[in-house]
Design a binder for these strands. Structure first.
Length: 837
RNA sequence: GCCGUUGUGGCGGAAUUGGCAGACGCGCUGGACUCAAAAUCCAGUGGUGGCAACACCGUGUGGGUUCGACUCCCACCGACGGCACCA
């Protein structure tokens, strides 16, 4: 027993020595905690990144991120990714002489705060401010060069005053209106149900929480975004945005060109059904019609024999959620109304059905069915045994609908024509006979703008007892949220907003004694984020939303970075508000964001999306603590192209930290001052690599290719380890190149190199092209496309000389000895290819 | 089903205009230092065959254009994201 115990003790002692030496090893690398704290404090105290006035005479550069929702969970590793990307652009352009505006703020309205308040009795405002404090501390620990004097918070009354003000302008122009419309009602949503916007419905369920959505009629506030559909679509073309996002917006707006056609109802001449079709050329093939079950005419035209069936069908549809209604594998269903429509082009009587495959919200909610040439109509006709009449040659109508182009048949004056010609001709005919006209349609629907919630901007409207409705006067804005206690905030169960419980806030009396009630719905979270990029420009202005002169100088945003999940919601709403403000003459540009970049997702080490349940979440706080903010920043930029998804690797992160240690060591040689081999004279050994590095890093930053910029800086440091002397000028310039990615360590070393001022405004280094171009280069000689030899040639050699040099090469001679040279391709500086047979 | 993105070593990725595929990093292997290890520094590292010089194969698959293709064209397969009865 005794010996074993002593062995154990010995092993333990050895282990401690091991630990101690590791600790000492750490001292050999740089002390990121002290350095990062020191420079963050310095930047704060000196307001280093305060934006210069508009009168500075410098060109402007406005760069921003999609501001975060300050959740209680704090930062995840995706935040530093996009924030570092913009910070590099901000710091890079600052050194290049731009006046840089890089702000940060908080998108702080939202459901979690309200739900937390209901659960715990805390005030959502206090809770939100706590979260912001925590978030801000985390963000600050990463050393981003924000102008913190411009910080904004959407829940601050001084901010939402202007959100409400914009709403009032929309109201005055008739673009904000209250309407009894079919809304997306999610009754199971915690807090007594909620109405959500069309954009917030995913697969028939709410985007947040996945609760089923039903279409029910309700009185709601709606913004007339459809009025801007065409401009929202066509102005996309000039934007420097990812094609995927532009395409998603185009699809969402969903423009289509076709025709409206009027069908009289047989025997009821006061009624006519207007249908929308993109294929008016197939009018002769229409064999029945379909109305959406909710269509106004249904009750009016249904015959008494069919009424029971129709009512039963309508009742069945009403009880279904959107998800059930849109299940594609579901069989087509419908009911016959007993009525007939008259085809204007040939006077034929065709039956009118109702079916839920026709949507009340698109077009006119009614269609003419051409089963021979439309897949959906074909399925329906087969199911209910309705006639199928071919009017275009092609396909096999006995098997499936033919939707392609072809020659028209059985179509009187359209016969022989193709699709395009036939469409033109039938539209002319319809217009001549008052039976229809050309029509453009959009899938885009108006923006359902009210939410039955407490924690949002109050809609500044008063409903008076005499039936009138007025805006809260602009001079009384902001209309502040009243304080509610825990009980008052609880859901009413009727779908009404908790604000209905704020009696003293709710009830108002006009000067003439008429009583009124405030609107109790609040705005959706998207309201505050639809214009915040304007407020950063002039965040403390209490007279106007922002000074027009300042807007003129700063707009529009030169670079906007954020996640692709906002492809339609936020980005479409923000464009809509911006265009509206443009029309009012408030903003000088048609579009808010000239260039948009979506950062890719950072996945877990297992290549899967990070999630708590998978246990693959990386916490940035822990990385900053053990590796440092600089290492995290450099690593996240080195992982791969910004726009791509890429998996996390702690080993690779450690490699980046080793690189920063190497940088530290080459500058300090682990002493107190700087490495003695850094000297004023230049032995020219590093000329080429230095100039190459400046060139590549400058170009790569400008194109946001951060991973390759970093790899070039690694190559440079590898070269310095082989050098005997390091020119001071080059080493200073290197610090500037690295600074945008790793700002703390470079400030520290910059100071050690003897500078008194921050590195942030040092003029960006230039390179000498002549130092990069070589006089003598190695060129590959290919034989039949395969590299068989390498030769050294002067760079300015002629084509013929080059060909001769190649064929004179002994290796080449050996290879071609018994073959015929057919052709020699010789391009100086590129390649030599000898084609032989 | 439609639209978009994407496919390169053991892994992350590079190759800017059609011109030497695999820069840089991770990992791995070997060496120096050390009593030993860690750290650090140096070197090697696509696969197969060969002592070697070298040869052959190699950028999702199959074809094509070209003196030459990761790159351009056609067809297909897989992964990711979005839309989804929009007439």
């Amino acid at each position: 027993m005794v010996p074993r115990k002593s062995v154990l003790l010995f092993l333990q002692a050895d282990f401690f020595v091991h630990q101690l030496r590791n600790k000492m090893g750490d001292f050999m690398s740089y002390d990121h905690k002290a350095i990062e704290k020191r420079w963050q404090t310095y930047w704060d105290e000196h307001k280093t990144f305060k934006t210069a006035p508009e009168t500075s005479g410098k060109p402007k550069y406005y760069v921003m991120n999609m501001f975060p929702y300050p959740s209680g969970q704090g930062l995840h590793v995706g935040h530093p990714e996009s924030y570092t990307a913009t910070d590099i652009m901000a710091r890079f352009n600052r050194m290049r002489g731009f006046n840089v505006l890089q702000p940060m703020g908080w998108d702080a309205f939202g459901l979690p705060a309200e739900q937390y308040a209901i659960k715990t009795g805390h005030n959502p405002a206090d809770f939100t401010n706590e979260n912001i404090k925590h978030f801000k501390k985390q963000v600050k620990s990463l050393g981003f060069s924000y102008d913190w004097d411009r910080e904004i918070n959407t829940t601050d009354p001084e901010y939402y005053k202007w959100t409400q003000w914009i709403f009032e302008q929309l109201y005055k122009k008739g673009l904000a209106y209250e309407d009894e419309i079919m809304v997306n009602w999610a009754p199971d949503f915690p807090g007594g149900g909620i109405v959500v916007a069309n954009e917030e419905v995913i697969d028939g369920k709410t985007e947040r929480g996945s609760y089923p959505v039903y279409r029910v009629p309700m009185k709601q506030w709606v913004l007339r975004i459809t009025k801007y559909a065409e401009r929202l679509l066509s102005d996309l073309d000039d934007l420097d945005w990812p094609e995927a996002i532009k395409e998603q917006q185009r699809n969402w707006i969903g423009k289509s060109t076709g025709a409206a056609v009027f069908f009289k109802v047989d025997g009821k001449s006061d009624y006519q059904v207007e249908v929308y079709t993109t294929r008016p050329d197939t009018l002769f093939g229409a064999s029945y019609m379909v109305l959406a079950p909710e269509h106004d005419l249904v009750d009016k035209i249904t015959t008494s024999e069919c009424r029971a069936d129709v009512d039963a069908y309508k009742a069945k549809i009403a009880s279904k959620s959107d998800l059930e209604r849109t299940d594609l594998n579901r069989e087509k269903t419908g009911a016959f109304t007993g009525a007939y429509g008259i085809n204007p082009v040939n006077g034929e009587k065709i039956p009118i059905w109702i079916a839920d495959y026709v949507l009340s919200s698109y077009g006119t909610g009614a269609i003419m069915a051409v089963p021979a040439h439309d897949t959906r109509d074909y399925e329906f006709a087969k199911k209910f045994d309705l006639p199928i009449r071919q009017v275009i040659k092609g396909g096999d109508i006995s098997k499936e609908a033919f939707t392609g182009d072809g020659t028209h048949i059985n179509s009187a004056f359209l016969d022989v024509l193709d699709k395009k010609q036939a469409i033109e001709k039938i539209i002319d005919w319809l217009e001549e006979h008052d039976a229809g006209h050309k029509q453009v349609n959009y899938k885009l629907r108006d923006w359902i703008f009210s939410r039955q919630r407490y924690w949002g901007e109050p809609i500044p409207v008063i409903h008076w007892e005499d039936g009138k409705q007025t805006l809260v006067p602009e001079s009384e804005l902001p209309l502040r949220l009243p304080h509610l206690n825990q009980d008052q905030m609880k859901p009413s169960g009727t779908g009404e907003s908790p604000l209905a419980n704020a009696k003293s806030w709710l009830e108002v009396t006009r000067q003439d004694g008429v009583k009124g009630r405030r609107e109790t719905n609040t705005m959706p979270q998207w309201a505050g984020s639809s214009w915040y990029f304007l407020r950063y420009i002039d965040p403390h202005n209490d007279k106007v939303l922002a000074d027009p002169e300042k807007l003129k100088y700063w707009m529009n945003v030169d670079l906007y970075v954020g996640g692709a999940e906002h492809a339609v919601l936020h980005l479409l709403y923000a464009r809509f508000w911006h265009k509206f403000l443009y029309d009012l003459g408030i903003v000088p540009t048609k579009e808010p964001f000239q260039k948009l970049v979506n950062q890719g997702m950072i996945l877990g080490t297992n290549h899967e999306k990070m999630s708590k349940s998978k246990g693959n979440v990386v916490n940035p706080d822990e990385i900053v603590d053990s590796y440092g903010a600089d290492a995290l920043r450099v690593y996240e930029m080195f992982m791969g192209p910004l726009t791509q998804s890429k998996p996390w690797s702690t080993e690779s992160l450690a490699g980046i930290r080793r690189y920063l240690d190497r940088v530290w060591r080459i500058f300090t040689s682990d002493g107190d001052g700087i490495n003695p081999i850094i000297v004023s004279e230049n032995d020219h050994k590093l000329d080429k690599i230095f100039n190459q590095t400046v060139k590549k890093v400058t170009e790569d930053y400008a194109a946001m290719r951060f991973n390759t910029a970093i790899s070039q800086m690694m190559v440079f440091i590898n070269e310095t380890f082989k050098a005997e002397k390091l020119p001071k000028k080059y080493m200073n310039a290197f610090l500037q190149l690295l600074n945008p990615v790793a700002p703390h360590i470079t400030e520290e070393l910059w100071q050690r190199m003897g500078h008194q001022e921050t590195i942030a405004y040092a003029t960006w280094p230039t390179y000498d092209e002549s130092q990069i171009i070589e006089k003598q280069i190695e060129m590959a000689v290919q034989i039949n496309g395969k590299v068989r030899a390498k030769i050294n040639t002067p760079v300015d050699i002629s084509r013929d000389e080059l060909a001769k040099m190649a064929t004179d090469n002994p290796d080449v001679k050996k290879q071609v000895a018994d073959k015929n040279i057919v052709k020699i391709i010789a391009i100086p500086g590129k390649i030599i290819n000898i084609v032989v047979k």
